[in-house]
Simulated scan of single mutants.
Amino acid sequence: METRTLVAYASKYGSTKEVAESITKILQENGLTVDLEHAKKVHSLEEYSAVVLGAPIYVTHLHKDAAGFLSKHHEALKKLPVAIFVLGPLSNEEEEWKEARSNLDKDLGKFPWFRPVDTKIFGGKFDPKNLRFPDSLLARLPASPIHNMPASDIRDWIEIRDWAGQLATRLQPALT
């Protein structure tokens, strides 16, 4: 039986999907058979030997589709090696990274059974021109944390590639 890895992602504006696509490609380059799927569309984990879950930290919380994925598949995920990556900070300020870690830890704490083999936070991407309602409305409110926020993209593609390569090595023993 062929062993397969699932890269499941949640994404509101496409940035996390782009990272998931990159991670999928790197895992494949490292010899893994990998499927890429939106977390909400995954119905079963029966055919998988490992899972990588990606999501943004959005308004201080893990994207709802990623949380839903963890809830829906909790029995299967308890038996599989699972790695999780999130996109969060929109600047390189240390405090923002600490806050992203704290928010992620708090949200993952709601799933006490979840023991990922690795958890990684990457910088995120923000483009106010792409905002849809209600986010576009929120961006116009002076009290909003995204009011007048400039576009940014601090995703570190070298770091993403390195992490995925290391992850492939970590998942290989679990897949044989």
Rank of each mutant, 00 (worst) to 15 (best):
P145H: 12
G14D: 14
L141W: 12
K125G: 04
S11A: 06
T176D: 14
G88V: 04
T24A: 07
N148C: 03
N30E: 08
D162A: 12
F133L: 05
K78E: 14
R161C: 05
T60W: 13
L87R: 00
T169Y: 06
V82Y: 08
E18W: 06
L80I: 10
D118C: 03
F114Y: 09
A76W: 05
R170Y: 07
E2S: 12
E29N: 10
L131T: 09
S15L: 00
L131C: 12
S49I: 01
E159C: 02
F114R: 00
L108C: 05
S102T: 10
L6R: 02
P56Q: 01
P112W: 14
V59K: 00
A143Q: 15
K40C: 04
E29A: 06
Y9G: 02
E99W: 07
K120S: 04
I23T: 11
K120N: 08
G109P: 13
E96M: 09
D135Q: 09
T176G: 10
V7S: 02
L90H: 09
D162N: 11
N130S: 15
N103E: 15
E29Q: 14
L87N: 10
A168T: 13
I158P: 00
K106V: 10
L104R: 01
L80R: 04
L175R: 11
D35M: 03
E29T: 07
Y9A: 00
A67W: 09
A76N: 03
V86Q: 03
L62G: 05
G124Y: 12
T169P: 00
L77P: 01
Q166E: 11
E159P: 02
G54L: 03
P56N: 01
P116Y: 06
T169Q: 13
I146P: 05
I160S: 02
P81L: 07
D153E: 15
F122G: 00
K79E: 15
S11W: 12
